[in-house]
């Protein structure tokens, strides 16, 4: 069976949100980048995505996905890492800066103005798809058959 997911930490949650969000949306919510030093320049790469045989058995290689990563350090020493889906280097750098800022006193403010907005938008998108899928659920009914009378 797949290993149970332990409750994610706050940092795991925000890094996941930043990985999945659209680059232009993040840029719109956080247009200015705080002063920082780039520790590892943004790099586009591939991650091999694995599945499991029969959904639960041995791992196998399904195929790769594009991922971009970047690491930065703020002037106050906070180090941030960005790992984002796709090939947008600006996205990875912005995610790294936000990851670093979330370790500072600015965290509550950024949580409200950036992350909570992204989380709400993602949830709304998921909810919309789930509702459309639910509308296609089959409601079986049984016809009365002649010989049963």
């Amino acid at each position: 069976m797949p290993e149970p997911q332990p409750n994610p930490t706050a940092r795991q949650i925000w890094m996941g949100v930043l990985a999945r969000c659209r680059p232009d949306r993040l840029a719109a919510l956080m247009p200015d980048l705080a002063a920082h030093v780039v520790l590892r320049p943004a790099e586009v790469g591939a991650v091999m995505v694995r599945g499991r045989v029969g959904a639960v058995g041995s791992p196998f290689n399904l195929g790769e996905m594009s991922v971009t990563r970047c690491s930065v350090r703020l002037d106050d020493g906070a180090v941030g890492h960005g790992y984002v889906q796709g090939r947008d280097k600006g996205h990875a750098r912005r995610a790294a800066v936000l990851d670093a800022l979330m370790q500072t006193t600015q965290a509550p403010d950024l949580q409200a103005t950036v992350l909570d907005v992204l989380i709400a938008e993602e949830a709304a998108g998921r909810q919309a798809r789930a509702e459309k899928a639910a509308s296609t659920r089959v409601e079986f009914f049984t016809l009365v058959r002649g010989e049963d009378k």
Partner: peptide
């Protein structure tokens, strides 16, 4: 592309 790693299944 450089291989950055492999995902969890």
């Amino acid at each position: 592309l450089p291989r950055l790693g492999a995902s969890k299944p």
